[in-house]
Amino acid sequence: MKPFDYVRAGSAQDAVRAGAEGRFLGGGTNLVDLMKLEIEKPDRLVDVSRLASDEIEDGVEGLRVGAGVSNSALAGHPLVRERYPLLSTALLSGATQQLRNKATVGGNFLQRTRCQYFYDVFRACNKRVPGSGCDALDGINRFHAILGASERCIAVHPSDMAVAMAALDATVETLKPDGSTRSIPARSLHRLPGDTPQFDHVLETGELITHVVLPASPPKRQFYRKVRDRSSYAFAVVSIAVAFDLEGGRIANVSIALGGVAHKPWRADRAESVLEGGSPSAELFAMAAEAELARAVGQGHNDFKIDLSKRLIVAALRDLSEGKREIAA
């Protein structure tokens, strides 16, 4: 590990003033690991884990969650269990209890890909070393992207939580070094790789996530399902977050997000367009799945993810429309 300056921030304002040349340290479960491997080599670590950012407040705008709240605390919060069960399930589907206890909400959003070519410093990776190439293209790419990839990068974002946040239309609040703040829809926080896969997200240098706000009235029917190679402690092959209401027998306020398929949590806009206002039926669900995956491109080993994603969409919609997963009003 390269030496670095360690600074413990006393406030979010202090953190962004000190943070421009370094990295913010939340739980560190990903960053410290990447520093050991010298994939991340910050000159300075600004520890934001002790800011007063671990509050969860309910208000008219919704549930406002501090960026420093641990993944396990958020997953177990009574209001999250009751009102946003798909988020609780997504959080508890990720990692292990030890990691969830340490990992923060802000850090979960900003964790890096687990592409093995990103982690292997002896292989080409445009995300790790821009311009060096991508060994995943002709390599073992079973876990890689089927949607929105580029010739420069086919890595996927590994988070379960971020998929849930995208489906719930959560909003990410940030503080910039100049003291200004902004709100970013969670679904727009991450980006597609294009020609610059070294950038995972749209945050500027030194911009700090301070809160995440969950809408006050999410859809009543919610579901998160993660398909993985082991029943616990494994990243998603494909995951899905679905939420909608049934109003007079018709689908309303539908949102679908997929994980493990793209460089960012993938909001399935095309499937949503097919579904919104429709009556639940196997035919409608299949049409929605086909519409969303029409653009999908396999890389060889991961071709199976295309059919798997379609089947997940259909199965999740079927279970939810049959009321198997309705939450208390």
Binding site: Y6, R8, L25, G28, T29, V32, D33, K36, L45, D47, S49, S70, S72, T96, Q97, Q98, L99, N101, K102
Partner: peptide, 29 residues
Amino acid sequence: CDHGQCGACTVIVNGTRINSCLSLAVGHE
């Protein structure tokens, strides 16, 4: 493993279990 994957380093900090290999000592003041 020293990378948070095996759990051999699990300790209990302030009542919750964590992987001590992925946590910088300086952060535990």
